[in-house]
């Protein structure tokens, strides 16, 4: 700073040269700092907000593809017509295993011919029953192959309600859009609709922690020292 420029000389004309040098030096830093610092904050905010939007809004849209079910099935309508609730169609086989989504063999008991005037039913009968093709249903609750899950143990033995995990799907009149995770291939319903993983109802998520939460309550203790959860081999056989 031995040779101050014109601008600083003008500002501190009547002051001691040493002071002027000092104060003018401070002035330079302050004046430029206000402008650049504003940009720094602005850019931080831009980056922050943009990434929040990406993380919370764009990312979920990119992560999940939207698929519609081949037939728009009306659960509510069917539930009225059957006597045994969910198990009327989602049966347990003779050997105790759970059949999951019913196949044509079951549906065609009633739907060999078109019954009503629903276009979806007509499509089902003509495209699938008549052609002996199984409907490629998209299964919202499908879990990875490394998970062993017994419906019999939960429904028959522990007397759990279907709703606890699957929600009030029986009351729906239309099948919702199936959102498939492009990376894993599983439904969005496993992670839960809420991208933050926030859960209000028991059926909102179907991740391992959700299984563990209930198992812990039922067992009354955390039985695995390593994972602080119920023992791994209960489900990962």
């Amino acid at each position: 700073m031995s040779k101050p420029d014109d601008k600083t000389t003008g500002i501190s004309a009547d002051t001691d040269s040493t002071e002027a040098e000092v104060s003018s030096a401070g002035g330079i830093a302050k004046g430029q700092g206000d402008e650049v610092g504003g940009f720094v904050i602005l850019f931080f905010i831009i980056g922050f907000v943009a990434s929040l939007i990406i993380g919370w809004v764009v990312f979920p849209k990119l992560l999940y593809s939207q698929k519609t079910q081949p037939i728009d099935f009306n659960h509510a309508l069917h539930l009225e017509a059957v006597s045994d609730g969910c198990e009327s169609c989602h049966i347990f086989r003779d050997d105790g295993t759970f059949a999951g989504v019913p196949g044509n063999a079951q549906c065609s008991d009633c739907h060999q011919e078109v019954q009503g005037d629903s276009p979806e039913e007509k499509k089902f009968v003509e495209e699938y029953v008549a052609k002996e093709r199984e409907v490629p249903w998209l299964i919202y609750s499908k879990q990875p192959d490394c998970v062993f899950f017994s419906h019999a143990a939960h429904v028959k033995k522990a007397k759990m309600e279907c709703v606890t995990c699957h929600g009030p799907i029986g009351e729906s009149t239309s099948l919702k859009v199936y959102e498939e995770n492009r990376l894993t291939g599983y439904s969005r319903d496993i992670w839960g609709k809420n991208i933050a993983g926030v859960k209000r109802e028991t059926w909102d998520r179907m991740k391992m922690d959700d299984c563990a939460e209930c198992h812990e309550k039922a067992a009354g203790k955390k039985s695995s020292v390593q994972t602080d959860k119920e023992a791994c081999f209960v489900c990962h056989k």
Partner: peptide, 24 residues
């Protein structure tokens, strides 16, 4: 200047960290 872009990056990183993206 350069600092603005660094700031943009830091803001972006902070925002991403506060979104579900990395964890998901």
């Amino acid at each position: 200047d350069r600092r603005c872009f660094l700031s943009l990056g830091i803001g972006g990183a902070a925002g991403i960290a506060l979104s579900p993206l990395p964890w998901k």
